[in-house]
Design a protein around this nucleic acid. Sequence first.
DNA 1: CAAACTCGGATAACTAATGTCCGAGATAAT
DNA 2: ATTATCTCGGACATTAGTTATCCGAGTTTG
Lengths: 160, 160
Amino acid sequence: MKLSGGVEWAVHCCVVLTQAAEPVPAARLAELHQVSATYLAKQLQLLSRAGLVRSVQGKSGGYVLTRPPEQITTLDIVEAIEGSQSTYVCTEIRQRGPMAAPPEACTAPCAIARTMYAADRAWRAALREVTVADLCRSVGTDYDGDVMGQVGAWLSAAGS
Amino acid sequence: MKLSGGVEWAVHCCVVLTQAAEPVPAARLAELHQVSATYLAKQLQLLSRAGLVRSVQGKSGGYVLTRPPEQITTLDIVEAIEGSQSTYVCTEIRQRGPMAAPPEACTAPCAIARTMYAADRAWRAALREVTVADLCRSVGTDYDGDVMGQVGAWLSAAGS
DNA sequence: CAAACTCGGATAACTAATGTCCGAGATAAT
DNA sequence: ATTATCTCGGACATTAGTTATCCGAGTTTG
């Protein structure tokens, strides 16, 4: 029950991408965070498949957000990386063994599954409440100086 | 981000153990659910380490709940199997790379980590709300007949 | 006192996540 | 228009975690 490490990278990338008007290559994002460029590319591909970012190919290509940051929730990012399937999978063991429940009595999920699904929904609901715009705002107030602006300037700068 | 399959088995075992006054061997619980006996034993060991069940050795030994079912939450069981560590681990990538934040500015977790931790707490809070006693009650109302009583009788019965 | 049955930790097989590579495609400059 | 360069995209090794298993230590019962 551990969240993929790539989720952290992906959320950070979405936050910094709000400060870039032009496409940012994956290699540059990797340099900014000092992480494996090839593996980060994999995460960005997932974001692209989910429609959160748009990939631009060619000489001055890279990744751009497709929506305004107010319309991107952390849940969107997490589900893009981890998938939208529930964290709990019920194997219906109540229908097995000598005390097996008859299939016609198992149309609805059992009490245990209902509890797990409810917890899963609560987790997702909490993530849905926070948008990328909220995260940017928090970053602005957490530190002194215009950190977001500085990052944006660094992304636009040419060489390293 | 998938919950260990053993969690399902462990919760089911705790529910049925409420119906057994005497110790129940792991092999019998495995037979009831038609799952691997040796692997289920591993889950029960984890429950034992967490103090949720008490193991009794010897000829008529087995496992017994240590507390009344009202005092065992599903969170207790999940944490016994999966561990109590957070689902999100922050690697502090904000302190790395050319735009690294100074360590003295990173005493508190960043906005992204705070969001993830909050979601984690919401998930755990939902699980903490449901006790094993609640699950037993739900099982009683979900099906016709005294299912819980029948399972208890089967556990006490001698042969297969 | 002995035998049988129990749990407990140490040990393999397998799956999924992690990390890496090179080719297809598009853009920009020539 | 062409060429060269830079981009992403999917296919390929490697590592860690989960799943499954076995045999020895300890205890109760007859």
